[in-house]
Design a binder for these strands. Structure first.
Length: 134
DNA sequence: AAGACAAGCAACCGCAGCGGA
DNA sequence: CTCCGCTGCGGTTGCTTGTCT
């Protein structure tokens, strides 16, 4: 298995950096077999040299079968704006209310599209709409 | 064609909360 | 009650890709 890890490095016995298709496969099979959770056991059970933290992140943000992937549509953007008006920076809560998208994805989208003063009017409008519905 | 810069995104880090021993 | 390990969350970093000059 040596030599196929790209630039990933080892630290304290754990591998870090980008995931390989082999690692993805191992993790996917593990979740299929044992379900989500018990992330700290994944390395022991599968032989993956990844921390539980890293495994959970990879699964939640990339491997989950119900993920939509692809670009965020204007409709989804509106939903995100409204949810943000409601929950502010509770990304995980927003993600749960918006199936198919991850908190990391929403957070990244927000930071690149809205944060730097861009589309402030839209954000305000969404917040006003939300408050009106209260 | 090539270098500089910006945007997008995957992944890591530190911390807090929770539950079991 | 306290300690410790595990999980989840929000913030941040840095690599990759696209665009501009």
């Amino acid at each position: 298995m040596e030599g196929q890890y790209g630039w990933g490095t080892f630290e304290d016995g754990w591998r870090k950096g980008p995931w390989t298709p082999q690692e993805d496969k191992l993790l996917t099979e593990h979740v299929k077999l044992h379900g989500e959770g018990r992330w700290n056991c994944v390395s022991r059970l599968t032989g993956l040299k990844r921390s539980g933290k890293s495994c959970r992140l990879r699964w939640v943000n990339y491997l989950r079968p119900d993920l939509k992937r692809g670009k965020i549509t204007p409709h989804e953007e509106t939903i995100i704006l409204e949810l943000h008006a409601k929950w502010r920076i509770r990304w995980s809560t927003i993600a749960r209310s918006h199936p198919g998208r991850t908190d990391n994805e929403i957070k990244n989208y927000w930071r690149t599209h809205f944060k730097k003063g861009k589309m402030t009017k839209n954000i305000e409008r969404a917040r006003a709409n939300f408050l009106k519905q209260q």
